[in-house]
Amino acid sequence: MDYAMIKLPINYLEIEEIYGNSIGKGLRSVAITSANPEEGCSTLAYALSQRSEVDGKRTLLVEVNMLHPELGDISGHIHTDWLPNPQSADGCIMRSDDVNLDILPAPCDTDVLGFRSIANMSKLMEHWLENYDAVIFDTSPVNARNRNNIPAESICAMVDGTIMIVMAGVTRQTQFKTALDRLTQNDVSLIGVVFNDFLNPRLADEICRETRRLDNWFPNAMQKIRSYVKKSSFFNINL
């Protein structure tokens, strides 16, 4: 399974903080985006939607990520084609196992052009906000420029606030700046940046890895160092 599709427990303090600074603060529409693919947008969008549902808000999770559609899989449903108008879109909304959470998976390739239209998206947004307390978007990466893409910045410009994910130790500063510039140029309201440390090793792991360089010379000493580091609460703090 792709790490981006791992379900994140909504009782994490990090999720609570993100929720408290977005939907919990009164924002009704939020977009989750990133600079590059596979940084965890779908995971966070799904967790944030579940947290909103637990708070008693009728919530709609909309996938406009055409690069790697995942919400049909993460919610246990197949992807469903839909068109850019309220009537046809409503027919493809899927009820999740959570009482107040509905999910709208990514549209098919033939419908993408319709969602690049600001008029169409404005009409959909107006309709959804009449029927839901919160609408959360899982967007394509900002730097993605494939032909079937729905530009993330156009979606982000329509919502009350945008959250950007950065994969720690992977996303380059130039990639982040390029994405940030595109959002800024489209007057996007960026309410926060989330650092995903899924691929960022702990200090203890890094120290243990480096000690193996000396195993040929000091095998017993290196084994003792690794044993100490693994048991140390200081070296195993999650940053």
Rank of each mutant, 00 (worst) to 15 (best):
N186P: 01
L183Q: 02
L129T: 00
R172I: 11
V166E: 13
A106K: 08
S154V: 08
N100F: 14
N149S: 10
A157L: 07
N146K: 02
Q175I: 00
G114H: 08
T174K: 07
D181P: 00
G114K: 02
N143H: 09
S122Q: 12
I118A: 14
G169A: 10
E126V: 01
V142C: 08
G161Y: 09
I118V: 08
A144Q: 10
R145S: 03
N148S: 05
Y132G: 06
V112D: 10
P107W: 01
D102A: 13
R172P: 04
A157P: 11
D102K: 11
M121K: 06
A144G: 00
D133T: 05
D97V: 14
G161R: 04
E130S: 10
K177Q: 11
E126M: 08
D109R: 15
E126P: 00
N148H: 15
V99F: 06
D98R: 15
L113T: 05
N131G: 00
M125K: 12
D181S: 07
V142G: 07
D138N: 13
V99W: 02
L113N: 15
D111E: 05
F115A: 11
L113K: 08
N131C: 05
D160R: 03
R147N: 04
C156Q: 08
A152Q: 06
D111H: 12
E153S: 09
T171S: 12
D138A: 06
I136R: 13
T178F: 15
D109M: 14
V159T: 03
R116M: 09
F176T: 00
E153Q: 11
D109S: 14
D138Q: 07
L124K: 03
F176N: 07
F115K: 06
C156D: 09
D133K: 00
V99C: 07
D133I: 05
T174D: 12
W128F: 15
T174F: 10
I136Q: 04
R172N: 06
D160P: 01
N143K: 07
A157F: 00
I165C: 03
F115D: 09
G114Y: 09
D181M: 06
L113I: 14
D138G: 02
L183K: 01
A106F: 12
P151H: 10
A157C: 10
F176I: 02
Q173K: 11
I136F: 12
D97M: 14
D97P: 04
P151Q: 08
A179F: 11
K177N: 11
V135T: 11
C156F: 04
A152F: 03
Y132C: 10
L124D: 05
A134P: 06
D160E: 01
N186E: 08
L183I: 09
L183W: 03
P141M: 04
L180E: 15
D181T: 03
V142K: 03
I163E: 04
N149A: 06
N148Y: 14
A157K: 02
V142A: 14
T184P: 02
M121G: 07
C108F: 13
L129A: 02
S140Q: 09
G169V: 12
N120L: 01
M158D: 01
M121Y: 02
I165P: 05
L104H: 11
N143C: 14
